[in-house]
């Protein structure tokens, strides 16, 4: 079943606040084979002028995930997760994420296209801090394969 084209333009409620923890940043940094002291060593991050360690560039996926779950659970979207392949990913920052940030994500479906029996869904999750200021937008294009 193709993805419902009528979900284009749909937004979902802001996710529950996600508190970025120092040890989570360090755990994620090690998992993406990072060696930057700015992500691993609070003293190095502080020497560079930050309150705490800085998250690696792809860390927002952890927050974005909660918003993508809303889309995938939307019965009207008709997205069969077992047929989903990650096509493209992008992160557009206003500032780096620092441990201690409290972040919420609001997902909007910006595009639904059909291409050769597959559907392509592009979803933008705008991630803001506790003051409501933009931090990063995470953009995913999901390819939903058609019936075999």
């Amino acid at each position: 079943m193709p993805v419902n084209p009528e979900i284009q333009g749909r937004s979902y409620p802001a996710t529950e606040p996600y508190l970025v923890g120092r040890e989570k940043v360090r755990e994620f940094a090690r998992a993406v084979l990072a060696s930057s002291p700015l992500s691993l060593d609070p003293a190095a991050a502080q020497a560079a002028g930050f309150a705490d360690v800085i998250a690696p560039p792809t860390f927002p996926v952890v927050v974005q995930e909660h918003s993508l779950a809303q889309l995938l659970a939307d019965p009207e979207a008709q997205i069969d997760f077992s047929r989903v392949v990650h096509g493209d990913q992008r992160f557009q920052y206003s500032r780096p994420i620092v441990a201690g940030d409290e972040l919420v994500a609001t997902l909007t479906v910006t595009s639904v296209k059909s291409l050769g029996g597959n559907s392509m869904v592009t979803a933008e999750s705008a991630i803001v801090d506790a003051a409501g200021a933009h931090v990063v937008t995470a953009i995913s294009t999901l390819v939903v394969r058609g019936e075999d």
Binding site: V32, A34, A47, P56, P57, T58, F91
Partner: peptide, 22 residues
Amino acid sequence: GFAVQPVVDWLGADGYVSDYQV
């Protein structure tokens, strides 16, 4: 996640990756 790390290491404390797509 790891493909960008050589860029992060090269930048050091001189700046950050403000936009990253694959």
